[in-house]
């Protein structure tokens, strides 16, 4: 169904991060919002994306924001970096989804939902770290990779899953010894994202706890946030609810705190 070669081929075909984005991220890394905005302005698609993103209701701005400098100014360094990473990820998403019933708008919404709630979680945990805030951007990579690898095998996957409870991540791991989150980490490496981002994503898979207690805690929160988000009707209808296994035991100890924070009753 899927071979090691297909995965390698997929990873090879991931384009390097565009120069403009790299330069924007470098300036953001130095905390220079003005320079970052000046460079980002040259990429029309990025401008468009940022405009769409920050004007989503979940960001809660009263008036429409359209200038990059304005957007970066409002977001601040950490969230601007997160937004640029979100944009990079969106470049990998297919123009037409087949395995999942997603589209461009729904995918952007998913990014926005995850990003806003992740910010809320980090504030609750008292963490102020722009790389940790950006880590959430890489989480949807697992969805994009699933789509890319399994989209031609949609019927096979459905038949397999009609007789056996098995998620896409496990299928991939058993067939190729490599799972969706390993591939997500490879993307992070290729794009020279901070190493920590890849490690958090691995922990967020729920099946590979980290030895580093802090990263493991973030992994738990991210895993639970992923399933909280994927339990929204629009994402269930997109067939995202069970693409990977929810590891309920892994997140049990943080559940109460999470449900209070998200006001679940």
């Amino acid at each position: 169904m899927i071979t090691q070669e297909k995965i390698e081929d997929y990873i090879d075909k991931i384009p390097p991060a565009p120069k403009i984005l790299k330069a924007t991220l470098t300036h953001l890394g130095n905390g220079d919002l003005v320079k970052a905005a000046a460079i980002a302005k040259e990429d029309k698609a990025l401008n468009n994306y940022l405009k769409l993103l920050v004007n989503k209701p979940i960001y809660g701005f009263k008036n429409e924001v359209s200038e990059v400098s304005q957007i970066f100014g409002i977001l601040g360094v950490s969230r601007a970096q997160q937004a640029v990473y979100n944009y990079m990820l969106s470049l990998l998403s297919p123009s037409k989804w087949n395995l999942f019933k997603l589209n461009r708008v729904l995918f952007y919404n998913l990014q926005a939902d995850l990003s806003m709630n992740w910010k809320k979680i980090l504030e609750h945990l008292g963490i102020e770290d722009k790389d940790k805030l950006s880590a959430i951007s890489l989480l949807p990579a697992s969805i994009i990779v699933s789509e890319a690898l399994f989209n031609e095998k949609k019927k096979d996957v459905a038949l397999l899953r009609s007789v056996h409870e098995i998620d896409l991540n496990t299928i991939l791991k058993r067939l190729c010894g490599m799972d969706l989150f390993d591939i997500a980490q490879k993307i992070a490496q290729k794009w020279e994202m901070p190493e920590e981002i890849g490690e958090i994503i691995q922990a967020a898979s729920g099946v590979k706890p980290s030895d580093d207690a802090d990263i493991n805690t973030l992994g738990k929160w991210m895993h639970l946030l992923l399933f909280y988000t994927l339990s929204q009707p629009q994402y269930i209808e997109a067939d995202l609810n069970d693409f990977i296994d929810f590891q309920i035991e892994y997140v049990q100890d943080i559940y109460e705190e999470f449900s209070q924070l998200m006001e679940i009753s």
Partner: peptide, 25 residues
Amino acid sequence: MRAVLKNGIGVFHPQGFLDGASSIA
């Protein structure tokens, strides 16, 4: 979501949070 059928027993495996809106979906 479809049930996994084995040995004459069909089992649904929902995940995450189940409320009125999500279970209908």
